[in-house]
Every structure is written in C-alpha cells, then in structure tokens.
Design a protein around this nucleic acid. Structure first.
Lengths: 199, 199
DNA sequence: AGGGTTCATTAACCTATGTTAATTTAATTA
DNA sequence: TAATTAAATTAACATAGGTTAATGAACCCT
C-alpha cells in the first residue's frame, strides 16, 4: 500500500523540518546524517516511558505518537500529538538528562530517524546552528503551550474540540475517540455528545 | 516603611537570578551592568500592552505583575504572575521582535532593572552565556507551562486553587480575589465558594 | 463620623460535563 | 459467516461551576 520511499527522500524531508528552526549548513547536515539511525516502532509500543531517561531526539518520517501521562486518579491525559515531519523527544528531560515525566507511545506503526544524546551534544558543541535549533524549538514549545493554556482558560469543551480539528487536520480519522477525549480533557461520553450536536 | 536598598544590593540580587540559568562571568556581568536602567511602574500601570512590540527584558526587584490578556468574550485571563527576583518580558515576542499578544500590568508599585532589546542582542553576540540563559529560560517556561497544562487537564478548580497557594506563597494576601480567579480560570463567585468550604 | 466606592459573600437558579450502565455499531478473528 | 471483542452512542442522574442579583464588609474620602 505504501510506496517505498528512498532513504534520500526521507532525509530531505527531515532536513526541511530542521531548517524551519535554523539554517543548517550543508557541512553540518552531512555530519549529522552520519549519526542518524532508523527505527520502526509498532503500534502501541513506546518511544519512551515515564520514569526513563530519554536518550533519543527523533524525526518522525511516518506515523503518529501521543505524548501523555497517567494522572494520580489513573486517567490518561494527552499533552500533544506528534505526526509526520515533526521532531519527537521528551525534550526538557532529553536536554537535562533527567527522567521523563511522560510517556510517548505510537498510535500507528511509526518510522523514525533519531540521533542519540551524546551525538547531539557533540553537534551542539561543534556549530552554533544546533544551539539555535534547540533554542528555537524551545520557543516553539512555549508558543504551543501558551495556545493550549489559552484554550483551557477561555474555551469550553466544544470549542476546544473544534480547534483540535483545525489544529490537527485529518488526525481525527486516524485515532479513536478515547485519544481525542484524553487530549481535550473530557470523557469519551462528553465528546460523543459534542459530536452529535451538529452533524 | 521600606528600607532604602542600595543599588549595589539590587544588582547583586539580579545577578543571583541570572546565575540560576547560567554561569555569568564577572566580565560579562560588568558589561551588562552598564546597560541596565532603572524603572518604576506604579500600580495598575503597564510594562507592556497587547499589540505593542516589546523592547525590554527586565528584572523585578520589587512588586508583582500579572501577565494576561482579554478574551474575545471580554474576560481577563491571567497566564502567570511575576514577582520579586524574577525576570519579566513578553518573552517570545521580545526575542522575535513581534507584537505581544498579552499585556503585563503592575499589581503593586514595582521597581525594575531592564535592558533594551538592542543591548541584549549585543550581549547575545558577544558571549555564549547569554545564549545559554535565553535557552534555559525558554526551557523553564516550557516546564512551567506543562505544569499548568497538567493542572487544567487533571485538577478541578479547588485543587488548582490549593496548588496556586503552594505555588505562589504569600501572593494571595497581596492581590484580590478577582485576580486569583482570573488565574484559575473561574469566576470570583466560584472562588469564594471554594474558599468558604473549609476554613 | 457619614457616605461612597470597591471587594467579598451568599443565595437561587441554570448548564456543561462527569458517572454509570445499557445498547448499538464497527472491527477482529475463528 | 458467525462469534467475539472493541468502540461509540444514548439515557438517567449527579455535581461543579456559571450567572445574576442582593447583601454585607472593608477601605477611602473630604
């Protein structure tokens, strides 16, 4: 069903993703490419589990992940979804070499390209573009989180649902209701009610 | 009522705040000090208003600010409070030289030390410690936002209120109920109910 | 000290969402 | 295809929090 994509094409897509954060000189990119490894993660398997120390910074070439944790009351809460062409990492923990407080799980069969922490640290020390990427990525996360904070402060569940659809086009068809509800902070029952309001 | 504090002491406090993010060499700190200016902001006045381009990165030596915006429906929503010994800025907008989407207002008479964007940019280019501070500050913001996201996803208003008290010790006595409610994402009436539950 | 302004409390009622459980629909597998 | 499991819908009821309005308390004023 899926066409075989050349490694080259995949790397090109990854390069484009990185360049959204900072200009990466050819020389640096060539260096980085030699550090990249490929990884397939089957549906429901984990990129990292809460309590582990992350050692990978990844690019998602295919598939969807959920970043989530389990609350004290035993409910799963999803912080964010990450799909094709996005970077994937338990970010703060990765940079600070501390345990991750959340888990990252594949919701489909996924393909990654990743670099290890030690290889990434070497890049960081070698050329400022990697520092810039790291910094810009943090800033992007802040903006992302602020938008979500805004939604919780200002919007009811129905509005948040509508924004979810706009924000993650097509995602709704690839994951089940339970995951969407855990992202919105409501129950699957409440989400079903919202969906049935207007057809 | 307030003892006169020497400029020197205030600078020392600011230096300690910066060093929580990265080691700042004496030479760099001396350079930075020559760029710092002092600013007093009276209660209810603004450090920045939504729609303006921020040009200051500040250190709060005294007072409390609220970072907030007004929602479409006209309600004020508070993202975060910033008090003594914390840095203050419409951060992303400051770094990217874009308009701020929120306002920052003094809830008491406040005293700041600040540096302008152009002076800060010069520092950034001069020594890597400033880049590190910037990056670490972003990471701190991400962690802060994640904690708040967690609260909205997992906790009811009463629990959020209790965490607010733990999180901002003493603040409750310095600001009124309206501000606390706007931070918690509930109405003042609801907050009053929560407060009266247990004395 | 009296009169006004602001802020907090309380009450009555309304609505969105949670909870539980039954039912239906869809997806998987024998 | 039938049988089984998983996922989504629906209904009935409970509750947290919103809305409005009235009351009460605290703080300013000349």
């Amino acid at each position: 069903m899926v066409e075989l994509e050349t490694e080259e094409k995949r790397l090109k897509r990854m390069y484009a993703t990185l360049c959204e954060f900072a200009q990466v000189p050819d020389e640096e990119w060539n260096k980085a490419k030699t550090k990249l490894r490929s990884l397939r993660i089957e549906k429901n398997n984990f990129f990292i589990k809460a309590g582990e120390i992350p050692d990978k910074l990844a690019y998602i070439s295919d598939g969807i992940f959920r970043v989530y944790y389990t609350s004290e009351s035993g409910n799963e809460r999803i912080l964010v979804f990450r799909g094709e062409n996005r970077l994937l990492s338990a970010y703060s923990s990765f940079l600070e070499n501390t345990v991750s407080s959340y888990s990252i799980q594949a919701l489909e069969q996924c393909n990654l390209l990743y670099i290890t922490l030690s290889d990434y640290t070497a890049l960081l020390n070698d050329h400022p573009c990697w520092q810039t990427i790291t910094s810009k990525y943090s800033q992007m996360l802040v903006v992302e989180k602020e938008r979500r904070e805004n939604e919780f402060l200002c919007d009811d569940a129905e509005t948040r649902y509508k924004k979810f659809i706009l924000n993650y086009p097509g995602l709704e068809k690839r994951i089940n209701q339970y995951q969407v509800a855990a992202y919105l902070g409501i129950t699957p029952v409440a989400l079903s009610r919202i969906r049935s309001k207007k057809n």
